[in-house]
Design a protein around this nucleic acid. Sequence first.
RNA 1: GCCCCCAUCAUCUAGCGGCCUAGGAUGCCAGAUUCUCAGUCUGGACACGGGGGUUCGAGUCCCCCUGGGGGUACCA
Length: 458
Amino acid sequence: MIFSPDSRLPYNNKDDNMTEVRVRIAPSPTGICHIGVARAAMYNWIFARHCGGKMILRIEDTDAKRNIEGALESIVDGLAWLGIDFDEGPYYQSQRLDRYNEIIDDLIKQDKAYIDNDPEKGDCVRLRMPEGRMEYTDIILGDSGWDMGLLDDLVIRKSDGWPTYNFAVVIDDHDMRISHVIRGLEHFSNVSKQMAVYRALGWEPPQWAHFPLLMGPDGKKLSKRRDYSQFHIYSSIEDFRKAGYLPQTLVNFLMLIGWSPGDDSEIMGIDEIVKCFTLERVVKTNSQMNGEKLVWMNGKYIRSYKPEDLLELLLPFIAAAGYDVEKFDRKWLVEVVALYQDSISLLAEFCEKAKYFLDDEIEYSEKALNKHLRKGDAREILAETLEAMEVLENFDEESIERVLREVAAKHEVGFGKVAQPLRVAVTGDAVSPGIYETVALMGRARALKRIKNALNII
RNA sequence: GCCCCCAUCAUCUAGCGGCCUAGGAUGCCAGAUUCUCAGUCUGGACACGGGGGUUCGAGUCCCCCUGGGGGUACCA
């Protein structure tokens, strides 16, 4: 990512080739990398990459009161994590005041704009709106129009000297030679205002594409304040990352909301999406986020990794859970990961599920103890299992299986009657991966110690 | 209030007049695999908001209603 100190643009761009695809996102640096910003960035970036065009970052920072320190970095970082980068920028609106004023003054000279005196608010500049109906076409929504008589003369310069949003956007998009404005539906009604500015300036407007809005998992409007964690949904990219989502999951999932490739493909990598993405296939309806499908998809991606690669992704989560990552044998950890790869859907789940591998001491679930160890001859069976395991030459999966089968045969009980007591004894709970793998990987010392301990407390 | 946009299973979607007794995915239910859980596989239930048209024929086109969303600032 490049941050050029002087990011003002050349004003004259008449000679440039306007057929080049150039798109942008224009966030305000007012907070974290919100899911809405990420989605807009994804549409623009994917469209740019599909067309071989350029992706540009512009910062709308004219409202100094709202600017937050570090917000730009967190937005750029969040997008980078998703795989979104920029070819140009960031350009700052705050550095382009001269350019806006030059155009406003010229508009006044031509009597296309005028100074409006308001005794209370001060002088502002308004653009004379055209008469009649303005027609325009949106790539996603189709033909539309607006009765311009409904609009007041648009304020283009506020009394504080700054241009208004709808004016600055037009100047910026033109100067940056933006070919397609791809943004959320909340901006749709700005088109008429911006078209009026394009017309006054005699400039060619870009192509418009307004994608529908993302609704919360509760079906209501997405709110920054609300906590959606019960739905496995978050409002910031950073929170998705912390919850253990993979970036490719988020990209895949978010793109499949509001767009489809046309066939039945569901699990799609970003390259594949770039290849077949078209704005025409973006749907027109608002859509609700479904956390269950998101979790499912993340599980699919988790299962697609080789265990050693998955471990690399898991390491930060293991460290964040308070473990000293260095104290574990790396190869052994890979095996633990392999054991759990099928049963986790979020990276953050690993430590909780595999805690009896990571912790020295385990906690026993009373319920599991009662159900599997304090019933029938479970205690006797476990004690016998312990005895047989103590004399095992090789403490490996095959040997352990043999022991369990022998014990089961001797007592004439099902395999579960032997496996479950053992499982509870070594893990503390009635649920774990396969019992031989679990016990073998745990190691002889740990397993035997835990069995003895269990026999003591039941 | 006014303006604009939208409308297929619970959810995300396919469908661009006959291929639709509406397809896929998640979730849900059942079965298989099995030492528990998960995973995987197989099967099942679940939708064209309502009413008028147009047409030989409408989920697909038109109108109305209803519902949802967005916008109506000297915010962005």
